[in-house]
């Protein structure tokens, strides 16, 4: 299987702080990859580099064989890599429907600014797409609600739905369940993962809850101190002594979610 996304020798430093170092890996198409690690281990830095928010200090990123290292985020999005955010990034003064229309209209654009000034943002084909998407992500009940007043879980779903509007081939989810109550986490991930599977999207998600990682990931990357210390199936990665010591903590058999250190 050839890799849809492949990074080699990735490194990012801020002054003397090393946020990421020596990251090399390949992700095959349609794999679902979980990323674990304590806060500050470099997970978000990794996501930020792939999506163009940060330029790597060293190393390269290839997507479908093309070098995308250091491209601006909008170009990377246009090529087919989308992302959602740890803190949902939506447009608070617009309704869910208008949020989705904005995302869909941009995605359907031909990149020419003249046509962007002439096509209606509420064109029938855009509205149709949006209506399908909000059904798929189960947020249709909130269609006309302002994003600023949405419950946290719905806002997260909207954030992800907006990222998916561009029909990406790779989607990076930065802590999709952060800020969500334990009871709702699984439900949210079920909605998201089945929606993504339906569209054959390769997924990389950052997650602190090991039960969610075990349940949804085909493969797990463990980050520590800016680099990947373990890479394998959930069983393999989570079973490693070093991962347990540094990231997951010894299995304490607490109610789910409590086993991962958050500090």
């Amino acid at each position: 299987m050839s890799a849809i996304l492949s990074v080699s020798g990735l490194e990012k430093t801020f002054g003397s702080v090393v946020a990421a170092r020596d990251i090399s890996l390949d992700i095959p198409a349609q794999q679902t990859v979980g990323v674990i690690g304590a806060n500050g281990a470099g997970k978000t830095t990794f996501v930020n580099m792939i999506t163009g928010h940060l330029t790597p200090t060293k190393g390269s990123i290839h997507f479908e064989g093309k070098d995308i290292t250091g491209l601006p985020s909008r170009d990377i999005t246009q090529m087919g890599i989308s992302r959602s955010f740890q803190v949902a990034q939506v447009f608070p003064s617009l309704s869910v429907f208008d949020n989705m229309c904005a995302a869909t209209a941009i995605a359907r654009g031909d990149g020419r600014f003249i046509s962007a000034a002439l096509r209606s943002v509420h064109a029938p084909e855009i509205a149709a797409d949006v209506n399908v998407a909000i059904e798929l992500f189960q947020i249709a009940a909130y269609r006309d609600t302002l994003a600023s007043t949405l419950p946290q879980g719905i806002r997260k779903l909207l954030d992800i739905a907006m990222a998916v509007a561009g029909a990406p081939r790779v989607l990076l989810l930065d802590e999709p369940t952060s800020g969500i109550s334990i009871e709702e986490k699984f439900q949210l991930m079920d909605v998201v993962m089945s929606a993504l599977k339906a569209r054959n999207i390769t997924v990389l998600f950052v997650e602190h809850d090991m039960e969610i990682v075990e349940r949804f990931a085909d493969r797990v990357l463990a980050f520590y101190d800016g680099t990947v210390i373990a890479d394998g199936t959930p069983g393999e990665t989570l079973g490693q002594a070093r991962v347990q010591e540094l990231i997951t903590g010894a299995k304490l058999k607490l109610p789910h979610g409590e086993a991962s250190p958050h500090a």
């Binding site: 447009f91 608070p92 904005a102 209209a105 941009i106 995605a107």
Partner: peptide
């Protein structure tokens, strides 16, 4: 017409959250 267009309607998203607009794939 411009206000209803994609470029015109993106004014509020730009005011609300510029980074999100960039990540949706437009400059």
């Amino acid at each position: 017409v411009y206000f209803k267009s994609v470029a015109g309607a993106l004014a509020v998203p730009i005011r609300d959250n510029e980074i999100r607009v960039e990540f949706l794939g437009i400059s």
